[in-house]
């Protein structure tokens, strides 16, 4: 049987994590080809709609990435993401959804290897969880 290939949406902020992804690319680091990047100016732009919408359209996992605390180009966008994301995790978890399909990670422009490792681990995690069937449910 062919191995399940999850589709992962990775949100990257323009200033750090996208540059981190870029660095991983130009350094020719080996990353599972299961992810698609959507670039936003800041991780603070990512609303719950974005994440739920990705799942509804068939993503098996969604990862939000941004600058490290204190490094956000807009000063505190990532802290706000952190709180918003916290509530999303708590709500979905309490409603009985397996929230291991949603991830958050701060990655700087210099952390190409971190980007590689994070995506690879996340893909592996979602691969084990199996397809999400386009719904929010497990």
């Amino acid at each position: 049987m062919k191995e399940f290939q999850p589709k992962i949406v990775v949100f990257c902020c323009n200033w750090c994590s996208y540059a981190g992804a870029d660095l991983a690319g130009v350094s020719r680091l080996q990353i599972d080809p299961n992810f698609r990047i959507i670039r936003t100016m800041c991780s603070g732009r990512i609303e719950p709609e974005f994440v739920l919408s990705a799942f509804e359209k068939g993503a098996d996992g969604v990862m939000i990435t941004g600058c490290h605390p204190g490094d956000c180009h807009y000063i505190s966008g990532n802290y706000k993401t952190l709180r918003r994301y916290h509530f999303m995790k708590v709500l979905l978890e309490e409603l009985g959804i397996d929230t291991r399909r949603i991830g958050l990670k701060f990655i700087s422009a210099g952390e190409g290897i971190e980007f590689q490792n994070t995506v690879n681990s996340f893909v592996e995690q979602v691969r084990i969880l199996g397809p999400s069937n386009g719904a929010y449910k497990e």
Binding site: R83, H86, F87, G103, K105, F106, N117, S121, Q125
Partner: peptide
């Protein structure tokens, strides 16, 4: 507004773990 401010103590317990 709770979601409009932040604290440097905000928890980061839900980060993706890298193995």
């Amino acid at each position: 507004h709770l979601l409009g401010v932040f604290s440097t103590d905000d928890t980061q317990e839900f980060m993706v773990e890298v193995d």
